[in-house]
């Protein structure tokens, strides 16, 4: 069973639809026991950082999520919330990844909205994916690059397209909206990531 973290950020349904299309059963829940018992946990998110963190704190999920021992995949805002701090609403986040989230400088259109390829990728999450392939991004804030970075992409500057530390994986892009490449990446998470 795959557990998708239920919270006030949007488009949890799209993630569930993508998981269903891949042939997996899933539940959308904020129940700690169910999250802990799941084979994998997906932490999606579209929305605003400080509002999302407030919701997680009210349910004590801010303490619980970083303690998870099963493989966790953060997506978009989910990824940003797993970092230490976001400039969006000057928000202290969960601190799994020691990356900081900054706003793109306004030297080009913000948000980055659309399909972009990678400048580097590594690890099981990107098995059978090439750097020329495009995935779908929608974001105004980005994670800087450090030792957790497993994929990079370029828009205005180089940023982390994906992160990994121990059992925590995360993508800035939306694999659930990234056509067949996205399916491959989700499938890799479900089948290969420990």
């Amino acid at each position: 069973m795959i557990a998708i973290v239920k919270y006030n950020a949007g488009n949890v349904r799209s993630v569930q639809n993508a998981i269903t299309r891949l042939g997996y059963e899933s539940i959308i829940t904020d129940n700690p026991e169910l999250l802990q018992a799941a084979d994998k946990v997906i932490f999606p998110g579209v929305g605003e950082a400080s509002t999302a963190m407030r919701y997680l704190k009210e349910r004590k999920l801010d303490l619980f999520i970083p303690q998870l021992k099963n493989p966790v995949l953060g997506i978009c805002l989910g990824m940003q919330l797993l970092c230490t701090h976001s400039e969006e609403g000057d928000t202290t986040c969960l601190g799994v990844f020691n990356n900081r989230i900054k706003r793109f400088p306004a030297t080009d259109i913000v948000p980055q909205m659309g399909w972009n390829n990678f400048t580097s990728i590594k690890g099981d999450l990107f098995k059978d994916v090439t750097i020329e392939e495009d995935v779908y991004f929608v974001h105004s804030f980005y994670a800087d690059i450090n030792e957790n970075t497993i994929a990079q992409s370029e828009y205005i500057l180089n940023f982390s397209a994906a992160l990994q530390k121990d059992n925590f994986y995360a993508t800035q892009f939306h694999p659930e909206k990234s056509a067949s490449v996205g399916n491959t990446i989700l499938k890799n998470f479900l089948e290969l990531c420990e």
Binding site: N17, A18, T20, R21, Y136, E176, K177, S178, S180, G182
Partner: peptide, 8 residues
């Protein structure tokens, strides 16, 4: 639509 397609 959301069930069937995997682009935005």
């Amino acid at each position: 639509v959301a069930k069937e397609i995997n682009i935005p």
